[in-house]
Design a protein around this nucleic acid. Structure first.
Lengths: 337, 337
DNA sequence: CTCCAAACTGTGAGCGCTCCCAACTTCGTA
DNA sequence: TACGAAGTTGGGAGCGCTCACAGTTTGGAG
């Protein structure tokens, strides 16, 4: 039997203190900013730290500070979608970066099943994280209630349908974005404007549909199809629309990824984009500039979104009240409409 | 000033013990399997736990057990690639699942920059995790040396080029897979077989190229191009090959994602697949069944790969010796070759 | 009825750290 | 010369838990 490596016990503050010829207290002060420590004590401690290879024991520290120095990024979405959708990418990158500036680590966890959710609920409450960023919550997601009950600070990305009261969230103005796009399509002379929505139990699903309806009115049900934000679903939905309403001359697709799929379907059906059918997307992520033609879309401010989420979370951890932030969206005109 | 929620102190074991009318020790026993606890004590404690909403404080527990109950999944790859590549998805899902069976949480962290790596190095050593799964390591990745020095158990996914000694890793048999595919292409009568390799500082890059060369010999340098596993790079590499060697009649593309790009490039150049040019991929992930034509490829055993990685990591945490596991690959014939 | 093993329970020590307070230096100034 | 302020230092208490060990109860065998 070899000695398990984790038992080869790491140096503690006392070891460092002894080597530096100072007390534990002084070492602690050095570790926490070095205030009120003399020049030579500081130097001695730093030398001892690098000689011993000392690293603070986070569990001991957290036990007393009641802070872990990490926050969770909780995704409640089947993994496939996560990995296909560039928006998550943008959001994750943004949050990681902003948090790193505060020296806080972001931990990504996935809650695909009810069992996962339970494990994560216990996990976050056990003190592993100081707060959580909740992404991709469908209507009635039990995670919100669970976290609230457990008293963990959290911020939701997107409007938490039916649970807006007393939760902090950051959303982009989906409804207005949809209005802008639909209005733009109409302003270019299109009259049979279809829509491919996201899942109707997500804010991006219902709010963008609502914005669209504000412009076109109740409209023709044959002009409405629903996807699940994946490229394949966009393609399928477009095919469906084409058979339901062959005379459509524009389509507002509620995500760029689905729009890419829709363009594929249109072209396969022999329709020219934008001559025969104008296509508008939503998101303005990487994929919008790789389609042929380039996608006219609504820009979501991902960087601001991440920054706001982190800001609100940190504020919330420090005891701030609940807040909701709605970020403006912007029409980006390219070639597809 | 409101009271920060984290200070609204959670119930402790003593609270539970008091309510249940037992001692701290008995509560601890219940929490850790419930052995040697009388029926009524167990019931009383469980009632008290649910009434108080008690959740163990992981920091306190870890401080004494020296175990955190989580392991890190460390990705050293720019994020874009991560999110584009379905292989990571497969691997991540597999590992999460197997670890969950052991009630261990998987934490995903990304080490894109040198600064990230440093932060992660400190982070893992601070005791946040009991071990690490290292994914996508390029030649000379400093993370391996760093983790080894810090004494953290870890398992590498794929052969760690130049650092095979004393590190535990799980790889699939890249070389043999490449031999199988190249041999198959040749067996169907193809004579000008090109290759699009992965980056040559990764095991998948060099080993698959080596396998290819075992079959075709040193070959024509015009038949070799290198990509970075992204779809776009596959498309670009194929375009390059087509101009260097217009007479090629087959191409072995070292990842399915790149193969999808290559097919696009070929079709745009007016070559029929597989009639004019046969295309072989590598990975057999989701994308292989969405291309037209369906992709002939080499199956990597992702589920076994994840299971083996977790098994070895847990063993290593428990003090086992270093080990290397090579998993067999398998040819899957579909329509593209 | 006695005794011993087995089952169960309580308690103190201690994991490695931060925080606080008391004590001890220096100085500059009255 | 004396004295307070500011800077610096050491060390005790305690965060919430597990673990070892000692003590208590129970019950079956002798």
């Amino acid at each position: 039997m070899t000695e398990p490596s984790r038992l080869r016990s790491r140096p503690t503050m006392d070891d460092v203190a002894a080597m530096a010829g100072v007390s534990r207290g002084t070492v602690s002060r050095v570790l926490n900013g070095g205030h009120n420590v003399s020049r030579q004590a500081l130097a001695a401690v730093e030398r001892a730290i690098s000689k011993t290879g000392y690293v603070v024991n986070q569990h001991a520290r957290s036990l007393v500070t009641q802070r872990s120095g990490s926050v969770a990024f909780i995704l409640s979405e089947p993994q496939d979608k996560l990995f296909e959708d560039p928006n998550f990418n943008n959001l994750l990158r943004g949050c990681t970066q902003v948090l790193a500036e505060h020296d806080i680590t972001l931990l990504l966890t996935m809650a695909a099943t009810a069992q996962d959710r339970q494990r994560i609920g216990r996990w976050v409450t056990a003190g592993h994280v100081d707060g959580a960023l909740l992404v991709s919550n469908h209507l009635g997601s039990p995670l919100i209630a669970e976290l609230r009950e457990r008293g963990l600070p959290f911020v939701v990305c997107g409007r938490p349908l039916g649970q807006e009261r007393d939760v902090t969230y950051v959303a982009s103005d989906d409804r207005d974005g949809a209005r802008q796009m639909t209005g733009y399509l109409r302003s270019t002379g299109r009259r049979r404007i279809a829509i491919i929505t996201g899942p109707l139990d997500t804010p991006g699903g219902v709010d963008r549909l609502a914005g669209y309806r504000e412009i076109v009115g109740a409209g023709d049900p044959d002009l409405v199809a629903t996807g699940d934000y994946t490229q394949a679903s966009g393609e399928a939905a477009m095919t469906r629309l084409l058979s339901q309403a062959p005379d459509l001359d524009a389509v507002f697709v509620c995500s760029d990824l689905m729009a890419a799929g829709a363009i594929t379907a249109l072209q396969r059906a022999g329709r020219r984009v934008p001559e025969d059918v104008a296509v508008g997307g939503f998101d303005d992520n990487r994929i919008a500039t790789t389609t042929t033609p380039l996608l006219t879309t609504i820009r979501q401010p991902w960087a601001r979104q991440s920054a706001e989420m982190v800001r609100l979370l940190l504020a919330h951890i420090d005891g701030a009240e609940h807040a909701a932030v709605i970020l403006p969206t912007e029409l980006v005109v390219r070639d597809s409409a």
